[in-house]
Amino acid sequence: MSANIIKTWRQMPTSERREAIAGYLFISPWLIGFLLFTVGPMLFSLYISFTRWNIVGDPKWVGLANYERIFTADKDFRQALLVTFSYAAIYLPLSTIVGLAMAMALHLKLKGVGVFRTMLYLPYVVPSIAATLVWVWVLNGRFGLVNTVLAWVGIEGPNWFGNPRTALYGIVMIGLWGVGGSAVIYLAGLQNIPEHLYEAALVDGATEWQKFRFITIPMLSPTIFYLLIMGLIGVFQTFTSSFVATGGGPLKATFFYMLYIYNKAWESLRMGYASALAWVLFAIILAFTVVVFRSSALWVHYEAERD
């Protein structure tokens, strides 16, 4: 197929040439935007990551000094990485389980299930800052909803965002509130599983669990895979909830990587160092994505026709 696309400009008949010119013209908004707002800034960012620069004056070339400091001396970097990874380790499995459970509930053939779908999706469209404010209040140690409910069963709830041991779980809850966004995608995946597979399983006397384990999970694995990748990228960009709820505290317990970049660039105006941090993060995300992609051969099941 690609062989006949490679045709030199001169060999093209006029009509094809005109179509090609139109084609380039039509994509030019994206192409210009891509060069101006993505490629240009990325190259520039790579350059200034080797400099010291507070945005006024000229960048001062420091070679690998920023990177060296990040990997050898920077305690904040390690803390930010630790927080972000801990969050990923708690949030990603939970959002997969809760999102899948929600999708399966929404997949039941019951009257009025569409109303539930709407209700459960609703928190996902709430602006992150509003969601964060709601949860800061809901998780308030003394006047919050969660601790009020916990008090009914005799548990004294913690001061969630004021306690370094629980603050991260507060952020996890803010994230999980929007899990309806993943649930509708899982739901679409569930709806695409052919009914006859379950019917066949029923004939074979399979239990509910066996149907779930040997039909639902394999058939849904491409969706799980997709949401895992998107979730991974999203986790590393977590910013608003920690910025607003805790400012990274207490004791840097919610000091997310993105917050660190923000502090370096916009609080201390260290553009070079912030850029180096961003590139290190990019490399980490890339490495993780590659690992997930590689591992997908082991657990993601694609239908034969897609191979």
Binding site: M42, S45, Q237, I261, A278, F282
Partner: peptide
């Protein structure tokens, strides 16, 4: 990721 282009 957005953070790479944010600063530049």
């Amino acid at each position: 990721p957005r953070q790479v282009t944010l600063v530049p």
